[in-house]
Design a binder for these strands. Structure first.
Lengths: 234, 234
DNA sequence: CTCTCCCGAAGTGTCGACACCTTGCGATCC
DNA sequence: GGATCGCAAGGTGTCGACACTTCGGGAGAG
């Protein structure tokens, strides 16, 4: 029995690399996760107030662990904690989206380079499995499944790059990016383009062509950005 | 009267982009800075215990702000806070150094690309001032001055890339990297190589050659890494 | 002499309390 | 009626206290 339900799996995918950094207390981390999911899934909209007193009441704890959770959220740029003022969900503007995509494009290009240098043939072959899932989802037009399998594919790539610091940083960016994911998937033709890119990417890995892999990786990310732009921004 | 003394200026250079993220309380941020400087300057060696109780006594505060400071330190990967155990200064091994340099090389390449696209001619010209300081320091053999002017040069570059997220992330990496800076400057010939690279870099900026600038930037960072490697690692 | 177990010292995570600050609303003044 | 001031409500930052956990050393068994 695979008793793990889908939401759990998804949360796992989002928080994997952040787990180790879990700021001592587990209560704080639980609260952190709870609020983080609320924010990235849009239930807590930008600007929404998240004050420690109310949260403490809601989670039936004292304000101490809540404050620590808020610090963790601030670290992920999901919440802004102005001194002596009430914390609120950080706004997302198009500038920030662009900035994040620029960084992600660069870092995923790095992932591809490192992967070519360090992954075994067997490991690279393992990526084909994800690729298969992706093209199946695209054919079926299942945007949601596609998204999550894409996250899985990327996590697998990052793992094969064998750079723990990079993994942590990309995970942090991924959480941020999750906030506007719905925007980047809206356009109909996009999935098929994306599938073709993944194909080219894995082929480049198999050929050990670092330069090509990096270029494809970068363009794959930037394609996502342009999709958002074309959709009219945030 | 420019009443700011050098240590203050240096601290300023290190923490600039982290200021905004200062986890609500100012007391916590002060403690954070104090300990961070101790760590990056080597006074608090890797493995050294930094428990909240003792720090609270030393700073004559309660443990609450100290705990928050420790969370900030953990965010910068300067301290490890295991659950229910005493926090300690994070160790630095050669693997981590390599990982960080790989990321930095990528991100500085990005900085160079963005700078070419976004900085004005006047702004690029401003970089020559730093370059002048650098070559003067190199001729004088003043390794320490060279290091700090180099930090200044890089901060200026990052500013011109006009990507706030990137700035914050590089600032965080810079703090980390400061821990092993002494290693990368030990070799005698290095400064002159470095000066030549800076020259090529600024010229590439002036020529608006994004590809070349990115390549030089990347190799500049990796040269630093190879210097550490050659010096025998950590 | 070594290994084990137990205990106490000291740390951690969490709590409720307190002073101070911010903010919005209503009374006050023109 | 509209602007200004002041006050109460409810937040924030910090504190000291408490139960629980970890760790190290010393008593005791083999």
């Amino acid at each position: 029995m695979t008793a793990v339900d889908l939401p759990d799996l998804r949360r796992e995918l989002l928080f994997t690399a952040l787990r180790g950094v879990e700021g001592s207390s587990s209560l704080a981390f639980t609260i952190f996760q709870e609020i983080a999911v609320g924010i990235v899934e849009g239930r807590l909209p930008p600007g929404h107030e998240v004050n420690s007193a109310e949260l403490a009441r809601r989670f039936s704890t004292s304000r101490t662990p809540v404050r620590e959770a808020l610090l963790l959220l601030e670290r992920e740029s999901l919440v802004i904690v102005p001194p002596r003022r009430r914390p609120y969900v950080s706004p997302v503007d198009m500038t920030q989206v662009r900035e994040i995509y620029e960084i992600r494009a660069s870092l995923y290009a790095l992932v591809s380079e490192l992967l070519v240098a360090r992954a075994s043939d067997a490991e690279i072959f393992g990526l084909r499995r994800w690729q298969g899932l992706l093209s199946a989802d695209a054919s079926a037009g299942d945007v949601d499944a596609y998204f999550w399998h894409n996250v899985g594919f990327r996590n697998a790539e990052v793992g094969l790059a064998k750079n723990g610091e990079l993994q942590r940083r990309l995970s942090s960016l991924g959480l941020q990016m999750h906030r506007f994911r719905h925007l980047s998937l809206s356009l109909p033709g996009r999935l098929l383009h994306s599938v073709a890119d993944h194909e080219r990417l894995v082929n480049a890995y198999a050929d050990r062509d670092a330069g090509l892999a990096a270029a494809v990786s970068r363009s794959l990310v930037m394609r996502g950005y342009r999709a958002i732009e074309r959709a009219g921004g945030v």
